[in-house]
Amino acid sequence: MSLTAASGDARSVTGIRIDWTPYLVGVGIGVLSWLAFAVVNAPLGITTALSQVAGGAATPILGADAVAQNAYWKSNPFTLDYGTLFLVGTFFGGMASALAAGSFRFEVVPPVWRERFGGSPARRLAVAFLGGLIAMYGARLANGCTSGNGISGGLQLAVSGWTFLAAMFATGLVTAALLFRKA
C-alpha cells in the first residue's frame, strides 16, 4: 500500500471496497506531528505565520510605523522564520504532489460549486475571497486554524482545540446546508 498510489482502493475480505488513502494520509500527518514536536519543538500550524505574512503585506499599505506599533504584529513580526518557511514548503509540497500525480491543473470553478451556482468565474472568485477573509479572521480570533487548533490542539487533548473543532463543524454544517439547500 503506497501513499503515492493514485487510488488506494482495495477489496477487503468482507467485500467492502475501502479506500485506505485518507487513513494513510492521517497516519502520515500524525507521524509528521511526532517529528514536529520532537525534532523542532514546533507543532504543525498555518495561520500564525500567515498573520506575519499579512503584516508584511500591510507594510506598504499602512506604513511601516503603523505595522511596527500594532499590538498584534509586535508579537508576530514578518520574518522568514520556521512558521513562514513552513508555508513555503506546504505550497511546493502541494505542487510536487500534483505534478507527480499528473493532476496539476488550473481550477477556477470547482465541479461541486458549478453544479449549484453555475460556471461564473466572478461569482466563485468573489465568494472565495470573502470566504478566505472570514476564515482567516476567525482563525486568528481562535488563535489557530484546522492545523494549529484542530490537529495540533486536538492531538494534545487541548480544550481550545476541541472547542474550535466543535464550533467549526457546527457553523460549517449550517453554512453548507443553507448554501446547498434545495431551491
Partner: peptide, 12 residues
Amino acid sequence: GGGIFGIGMVLY
C-alpha cells in the same frame, strides 16, 4: 473564532 472560521471554510 471557530464559528466564524466554519462559515469561511465552507464559502472558501
